[in-house]
Amino acid sequence: MAKKSELTEKDLERRRRVRRGIVATLVGGIFWGLNGTVSKWLMDAYAIDPLWLVCLRELSACWLFLAAAALTARGREQLAGVWRSPRDLLAILGVSLGAILFSQVAYLEAIDWTNSATATIMQSLGMVLVLVYVCVKMARRPRRRELLGVALALVGTYLVATGGNPGQLSLPPEGLFWGLACAAAAACLSILPAAPMARWGNFTVNGLAFLCSGLILTVVYRPWEHMPALDGVAVCVLALCVVVGTFGAYALYLQGVKDAGSMRASLLGTIEPVTATVATVVWLATPFSMAEIVGFALIIAMVYLTA
């Protein structure tokens, strides 16, 4: 009887953890979706260059990640220990360049050339590239539902890119390029950080990767030469983008992956493109054709089939 009661208590604890993970994933996805729309508004209203915004987000959010890591004894051990492992520092450098810098630049450039809804939907195509990686790594063929998901993704991308008219592009060529770059960046973001995070924790890896990425971009881009004219409203909105849309979204989503599992998180993460689409239509009054909406739906369906 005691054993049965003990198992029941463990069951309840597991369910509480999963429910907490579901909520964290949903809130993190909503923050990400809203952050894209807010970033588009900032870039349009204040003529902010996407690369300037990337510099600000990375060099501000990195300290929040590192501070969060330093709050726990385990995190402090990881922060101190990672410097004694040159191999892992090289891996984090790879994350900073191949995942963080690539994804931040591609996403904001895609938003600048299109809108947050289109950029976020195109970003979801990264699931197809992750599927290819998994099949190659595990030396297996894709399953039928996975092939169906890829087919839906291709049709969805065609509808989003052309608006259903094969004779013209609904998106500007630059928007299509950066949208596809978003997909590649999303795949890198799903694959590259996995090993270093498993050893050193997500806050430590993200904090160092964001810091390294921001410093490299700052040296190359020189953001002080591209300062936009900002008022009090813009400063407050930028602070929200950093604290809520970058640090908050990452922290909540990663907690959701830990508590609810990667498969649930992948499926629940589709709240991000839905939120971005609704916010783009309601707030920015951006119109979409029926073909584009159908394309969005097909790409989201691909996520469910391949997750």
Rank of each mutant, 00 (worst) to 15 (best):
A2S: 11
A2D: 15
K3D: 15
S5F: 08
E9W: 06
R14C: 12
T25W: 14
L26Q: 11
I30R: 03
V38N: 10
L42N: 11
A45G: 09
A47T: 12
D49V: 06
D49F: 04
R57M: 11
S60Q: 10
A61T: 02
C62T: 04
W63K: 01
W63H: 05
A68W: 07
A70M: 03
R84M: 07
D88W: 14
I92R: 01
I92T: 07
G94P: 09
Y107V: 14
D112L: 13
W113P: 13
T114N: 15
S116Q: 08
A117H: 09
Q123P: 05
L125E: 09
L129W: 11
M138R: 07
A139Y: 03
R141V: 07
P142K: 09
R145K: 05
E146P: 10
G149P: 11
A151K: 00
A153I: 08
L154T: 05
T157A: 11
A161K: 01
G163Y: 03
G164F: 10
G167K: 06
G167S: 14
L171T: 03
W178Y: 04
A181T: 12
A195F: 12
W200C: 09
G201D: 11
N202I: 13
N206P: 04
N206W: 02
L208T: 03
S213G: 12
G214S: 04
G214E: 10
L215V: 00
V219M: 02
W224H: 02
A229F: 09
V233H: 06
C236R: 09
A239N: 09
F247G: 07
G248S: 00
A249F: 03
L252Y: 00
Q255H: 11
K258D: 15
S262P: 15
I271D: 15
A276K: 01
T277A: 03
W283H: 02
A285H: 12
P287T: 11
F288I: 06
F288S: 07
A291V: 06
A291G: 08
G295S: 05
G295Q: 02
M302H: 02
T306Q: 10
